[in-house]
Simulated assay, not measured.
Amino acid sequence: MSKVNNKVSVFAPASIGNVSVGFDVLGVAVKPVDGTLLGDVVSVEASERDELIVIGEFANKLPGEPKDNIVWHCLQLFNQALIARDLPVQTVTLTLEKKMPVGSGLGSSACSVVAALAALNAYYRDNYQVSFEQEAMLRMMGEMEAKISGSLHYDNVAPCYYGGMQLMVPDSEIITRQLPQFGDCFYVMAYPGIEVSTKAAREVLPEHYSRAELISFGQNLATFVDACHRHDKQQAFSVVRDIVAEPYRQHLLPGFEQACQYLNAQGCLAVGISGSGPTLFCVTDSEQQANEFANWLKENYLQTLTSGECEGFVHVCRVDEQGACQLAQ
């Protein structure tokens, strides 16, 4: 193969893991209606040696050493996959533009993982006519995500990669199925500006759940899936309730309980914790109401740090049906 230097950049969007009703098995990709790139961008180009450059608004929140960055581990895994198929490995420079806050509950690590692996795959495809199929890529993404969270779950990487709302299925080949969504709905995402690690959020969960809780969880999730396929919006969002995690995590999120009470009283379709938090999401089918909720959350849910600054933000979003996408150079 002749060496070339056609740079490739891939954007991977934010996602809501769990979506309250589907702990570890349900996730949806989201994108701000104002065109903001809420997610990460990874670029790949030829170089004399492998290296990682980290830039972007939240770059200072990541480890300083490349070997401690998940994107560097993605490169090692991708190279191993190439070697396993007797394919030549090229030296590259990876540039991670970190646009997502760490520990936000918006699938920050999944964004980096998906953007990195998808960019590497696109780089090899465009320059060397070598690429892996989507299912193999998704399995690699799940493996990388597990390194960070401590357990294998696809509820962020699958929607981040494929787009839409994804339901994880117990099939190691298929992994996920896309659910029909409601095109008139808005997802208001409020990141308060504080960090909650996925591992810490998992540690507060109980080891065991009661039979009644298991029945309620299964019934709600089954009803949600059925309602999505029947396009019954009211019934779908009426069962978006978190039996598994929210009761045990809400104390980690200052102002969350009060925000839920207000938003529910104002008639939103659903409200919950995005992933492991601290981001809150709420759903409405009214654009005017979405903007009103966004303004209220800016005033009442974002947290001011001891420095007097606030790193939080609020975005009015729609479902991102595209998922990870290659950017024009």
Rank of each mutant, 00 (worst) to 15 (best):
S43N: 06
G164H: 08
S307I: 03
M141K: 11
S104D: 02
G17N: 03
P159N: 06
N6I: 12
D226S: 15
V157C: 10
G27C: 02
L138R: 07
D68H: 07
D242S: 10
T304E: 13
R249W: 04
E48P: 00
F237H: 11
L167N: 11
G105F: 01
T95E: 09
V19K: 08
V114W: 04
T306Q: 15
V225K: 08
S108T: 08
G183L: 15
H231N: 13
P180Y: 11
Y123I: 06
L280W: 07
A118I: 02
L38C: 07
A265C: 03
K7Y: 02
A227R: 03
L305C: 05
I175F: 05
D24R: 11
F78T: 03
P206L: 09
Q234T: 08
R241A: 14
R202G: 09
E321M: 15
A158D: 01
A115E: 06
I16T: 04
V71D: 00
R85C: 03
L37A: 00
Q134E: 14
V89Q: 05
V314N: 08
V157Q: 04
K67I: 13
F217A: 14
T304Y: 11
A227E: 06
A290D: 04
V44R: 05
G150H: 04
L179V: 10
C282D: 06
F132K: 10
A116E: 02
A14G: 13
Q326A: 13
W296S: 00
V25M: 13
V102F: 00
W72H: 12
D242Y: 09
V204N: 08
C160K: 12
S20M: 10
K147D: 02
Q329Y: 11
T284M: 04
Q219M: 14
E45M: 12
Y123T: 01
L138P: 01
A84Q: 14
E246D: 07
N220V: 01
A119F: 08
Q80S: 15
L167G: 06
E309H: 11
I83E: 14
M144D: 00
Q289F: 12
R211Y: 04
S131G: 03
V130Y: 01
Y209K: 14
V188H: 06
D34F: 07
V8L: 10
K199D: 00
N295A: 15
A84M: 08
Q322W: 04
N60C: 04
L302A: 04
G105V: 12
V113T: 14
V314P: 01
A270G: 01
Y191T: 01
D40V: 05
N69P: 05
E133K: 15
Y154G: 05
A29W: 07
I55C: 13
F256H: 07
Q181N: 14
T95R: 06
I53K: 12
E213Q: 15
C317T: 11
